[in-house]
């Protein structure tokens, strides 16, 4: 009988620690499938973050170097500059990228580092127990915004992808989600495209993924998926935000 579905070679045989309905496990698998399909397992180096995905090094069957909180793009920069022909991706959450590591992420993008950032935006700090994130929605109740996020006190949800499109060093930015089979397929295509752009030395690529966190949203997985469509994606619209044609890519972040 022909095998039609199996664990990607770029995944280890390890059970995920993620909660039911969490978007991390889906995204992990998508990345691994793309690595398999592009046959780049041997040249890929991943940089997992601090946060729920801190254990990602256990799941990917590729070289992984764990970064300190927020420093993924800096660590990835060091690797990629020394090994420009490897595929280097940093995997970051909303706290990691949009708060503590905003400087490292912003400047890696601005230098046009030829790396890929997979950005999980779930509007909440998962690992630490559901505190407010820089991408939490206005009015969203979290363990550190018990009355709901208030713009005058807590600022507004940061639209990282939109902001990063302004940086000439970025080549490709797309916002996706993983709340339906169709959305998942789209996300996989986006990840593949980002890796392809990297192989083509086009510069910084960012795939933002609106990702459900039923545990900290205090919702069922189905309610969570619905909330992404009905609430989150209103503030964080899905789609390709930037796609620089090959000729215009800056090929930045490379030492001549």
């Amino acid at each position: 009988m022909k095998k039609v579905f199996c664990r990607p070679k770029s995944m280890t045989d390890t059970v995920f620690h993620y909660c039911a309905g969490c978007g991390h496990s889906i995204t992990h698998r998508l990345i691994a499938e793309v690595i398999d399909e592009m046959d780049i397992r041997g040249i890929t180096i991943g940089v997992p973050p601090a946060g729920c995905a801190v254990l990602a090094y256990k799941y990917f069957n590729v070289d992984m170097i764990e970064a300190q909180h927020g420093r993924g793009p800096a660590t990835a920069t060091g690797i990629k500059r020394m090994l420009p022909d490897r595929v280097v991706f940093s995997y970051q959450g909303d706290g990691d990228l949009a708060a503590i590591g905003i400087a490292e992420s912003f400047h890696a993008a601005n230098r046009g580092e030829n790396i890929t950032v997979v950005f999980i935006n779930n509007a909440v700090y998962g690992m630490t127990g559901g505190q407010m994130a820089p991408t939490s929605m206005l009015g969203q109740k979290t363990t550190t915004s018990p009355a709901g996020r208030a713009s005058l006190l807590d600022g507004h949800p940061i639209q990282i992808s939109e902001v990063f499109t302004l940086l000439p060093g970025t080549a490709y930015i797309e916002r996706c989600t993983v709340n339906s089979p169709a959305a998942i397929l789209k996300t996989k295509k986006a990840i593949r495209k980002a890796f392809e752009y990297q192989l083509d030395c086009r510069g910084f690529s960012l795939v933002e993924i609106l990702s459900p966190c039923p545990t900290n949203w205090k919702m069922t997985p189905i309610e969570s998926n619905r909330w992404i469509d009905e609430v989150m994606s209103k503030k964080f619209p899905l789609g390709v935000l930037k796609d620089l044609p090959a000729g215009e890519a800056k090929k930045g972040g490379k030492t001549p």
């Binding site: 940089v47 170097i65 970064a67 300190q68 420093r71 800096a74 660590t75 990835a76 920069t77 060091g78 690797i79 990629k80 500059r81 020394m82 090994l83 400087a103 490292e104 912003f106 400047h107 230098r111 030492t255």
Partner: peptide, 22 residues
């Protein structure tokens, strides 16, 4: 040879982490 004027001392040391690992 690779030289990077980093955005901060924090970024610099973590770039060193990456380069050293490589």
């Amino acid at each position: 040879g690779v030289f990077i004027q980093s955005e901060s001392e924090i970024a610099a040391i973590h770039m060193v982490v990456g380069a050293s690992a490589a």
